[in-house]
Design a protein around this nucleic acid. Structure first.
Length: 255
DNA sequence: ATGGTTGCTTAGCAA
């Protein structure tokens, strides 16, 4: 069973690449972030024609998440469901083949010290509360997506450059650790211990040509999911060529 | 400190 996560930075701008990627890799589950489209304009038919169902939680212009699956999910839920008003579409979850899959687009946070950064930290706390309320750490569960956090210095090509950024800042890393303390581990790190593996490169300042990347797209799993995880890899080639997303897909294979 | 690029929307925001 292949499960992948990919921040496409607009599904409409990336439709041809997404279609090609699905045809090449045929994942069972593909979690998408930054759709930048409202539900009505999501290219549903173009993706369903490839044999996928689409659970979509869209938003005009910003954010938006979806989960594509080859099989029909047994349940779908959208949002943190904590009763608070939040117009930002950042979480969608499905249950499929007895596995819970939560797809998140964690707020970027702009800069440390801003309201956006406080929103990011609060959102991480609410994600942990959501897990506590609706999920069990002893069941098979995947939480994947664009976390906008590099967990460790070795997840940044130039850690000194990024140390005070919202992607590497101590409080963001603590927020991620608190989410993981629910009972989740980084499945990429089950298989690859070395640094030098990145999932995002800034469009600006020749980020990709210089390989000035960060590993901020993660697949987390409970022990029951981690035990089934056979491989994990980042499709760095997808960042190459004409009109790529600034993120590469991250893939895990589960028994 | 600023700017560099991309996408959506159409001057400015978010990343």
């Amino acid at each position: 069973m292949l499960i992948a996560t990919w921040n496409v930075n607009s599904i409409r701008a990336r439709l041809a690449r997404a279609q090609k990627w699905l045809e090449t890799h045929r994942p069972d589950v593909l979690c998408l972030q930054e759709l930048k489209v409202q539900d009505a304009d999501f290219p549903r038919a173009e993706l369903e024609s490839l044999g996928y169902r689409a659970a979509v939680f869209g938003q005009k212009t910003y954010n938006g998440v979806a989960i594509l699956t080859r099989a029909e999910p047994t349940s779908v839920s959208k949002g943190l469901g904590d009763g608070e008003q939040d117009p930002q579409a950042r979480l969608i979850a499905v249950q499929i083949a007895g596995l819970e899959v939560i797809n998140v687009y964690v707020p970027n946070g702009a800069e440390v010290g801003t309201d956006k950064y406080e929103y990011k930290l609060r959102w991480l706390e609410k994600l942990r509360a959501h897990l506590d309320r609706h999920y069990r750490p002893d069941a098979p569960l995947i939480v994947c997506g664009d976390f906008n956090i590099a967990p460790e210095d070795k997840d940044a090509a130039q850690p000194e450059q990024w140390r005070d950024s919202v992607l590497c800042h101590e409080l963001a890393r603590q927020g991620l650790q608190n989410v993981c303390a629910f009972g989740l581990t980084d499945l990429f790190r089950k298989h690859v211990m070395t640094g030098g593996h990145y999932s995002w490169w800034d469009y600006r300042m020749l980020g990709f040509p210089k390989n000035n990347g960060l590993r901020i797209d993660l697949v987390l799993g409970t022990p029951a999911a981690a035990a089934r995880c056979k491989t994990a890899w980042i499709d760095r080639d997808e960042r190459k060529g004409q009109q790529p997303s600034d993120h590469a897909p991250v893939v895990v294979e589960l028994d």
